[in-house]
């Protein structure tokens, strides 16, 4: 009786339905992935899935390919995006200009990917690692420009002037002042490009005519074939990537605005 009396419709109660929803559709599904990683096809406990994933040639090739394409895409994006963001941060009308650079990311990635694919096919370009890299950079470049521009345009100009007054030449101003101040932008750019690059499915499949499989493609394929165990292991590996990059990002963002991170 006392319990019921204590229950009041406070505002706290409003959060319960969504907390239940998150428990059901976010937490339990992830737990199921963890559980499935230790189950074989008959539902018995096993560590066989781990063995299969870490010894099978094909899955190691996928891991290698993903890391290769992921790292290469991220580096190319960084090399292109940093100067773009840096130049834009010097303009007064930089906001409108940066809008032009990130606008394409609002168009569905499948459409952008297929648009580039038909053009490659028409130009008789051989589909392979080169076209996959092009497609990835084309898709994810805006995701690198955006955080870099945010960080670079918020650097107080007086830091740069101070460095110049103290006798630093232009290279030193860049290496010792601008670069360290933009580390958080670089890191969030890397995360926003690297994670989607290795986990998206369809881009590499379309742009390599199905010859290059990345993590996302093979997770999808394993589940399609009903291989829940190995698929779950690959999902866990993917999750580890996500958590590591998130951890790194929040470490560097501690004194800045730590948005979109877990720790």
């Amino acid at each position: 009786m006392k319990r019921i009396k204590n229950f009041k419709l406070t505002r706290k109660v409003f959060s319960y339905p969504y907390i239940l929803f998150m428990l059901l559709f976010i937490v339990i599904p992830l737990v199921l992935i963890l559980v499935n990683a230790f189950l074989d096809a008959e539902g018995n406990l096993t560590v066989e899935n781990f063995k299969i994933f870490f010894t099978e040639r094909s899955s190691l090739i996928v891991l290698g390919n993903s890391l290769l394409v992921g790292v290469a895409t991220t580096l190319i994006c960084l090399v292109i995006a940093y100067p773009v963001a840096y130049i834009l941060s010097k303009y007064n009308s930089g906001k409108i200009l940066v809008l032009l650079f990130v606008l394409p990311m609002w168009v569905n990635f499948l459409i952008r990917t297929l648009a580039t694919k038909v053009i490659f096919v028409a130009l008789d370009v051989k589909l392979g690692i080169g076209t996959v890299l092009f497609g990835m950079v084309y898709n994810y470049l805006p995701f690198m420009i955006l955080p870099l521009h945010t960080v670079l345009s918020s650097i107080d100009k007086s830091y740069i002037e101070a460095a110049e007054d103290l006798g630093a030449d232009r290279i030193n101003v860049f290496v010792k002042t601008i670069l360290p101040l933009s580390v958080s932008g670089i890191l969030s750019g890397i995360t926003m490009v690297f994670i989607p690059t290795i986990s998206t499915f369809a881009i590499s499949q379309f742009l390599s005519n199905g010859t290059i499989f990345l993590f996302g493609d093979s997770i999808n394929m394993k589940f399609e074939q009903g291989l829940y165990g190995v698929g779950s292991i690959m999902s866990i590996v993917m999750l580890v990537f996500v958590l590591i990059s998130n951890f790194l990002m929040s470490k560097f963002n501690r004194n800045g605005a730590a948005r979109g991170t877990l720790w």
Binding site: F25, P196, G231, V242
Partner: peptide, 11 residues
């Protein structure tokens, strides 16, 4: 923060 594919297969 999670990658879409992991969220998709877990669901």
């Amino acid at each position: 923060i999670n990658s879409e594919i992991v969220m998709a297969v877990s669901l």
